[in-house]
Amino acid sequence: MKMKLKLSDKWYQIRTKAEAGCLDIAAGMSLEPVSKKQKIRKAKKTVSTRSTASKVKTISRTRAS
C-alpha cells in the first residue's frame, strides 16, 4: 500500500513543540514488562563483573578439563 503522507514544515514545527515533554509514546493492546529471560541475563552480567577472579578460575578449569 503506497502511503501518500505529506507533512508540511509547519506541521513538523508544531509537533516538535508538542512532543518536547513526552516521556514515552507507547500504545498497545497488552503490556509486557521486561521478561524473566532479560532479568536473568542482567543478573548474570552483574555477577561476572563483580568477581573477575572467580570468572577467570572457572574458564581455566574448563580449559583444563
Binding site: E19, L23, D24, I25, A26, A27, G28
Partner: peptide, 11 residues
C-alpha cells in the same frame, strides 16, 4: 488505541 500510562500525554 490503548495508551500506556506514561504515554497518555503524548496522545
Amino acid at each position: 488505541l490503548h495508551a500506556l500510562e506514561q504515554s497518555e500525554g503524548f496522545y
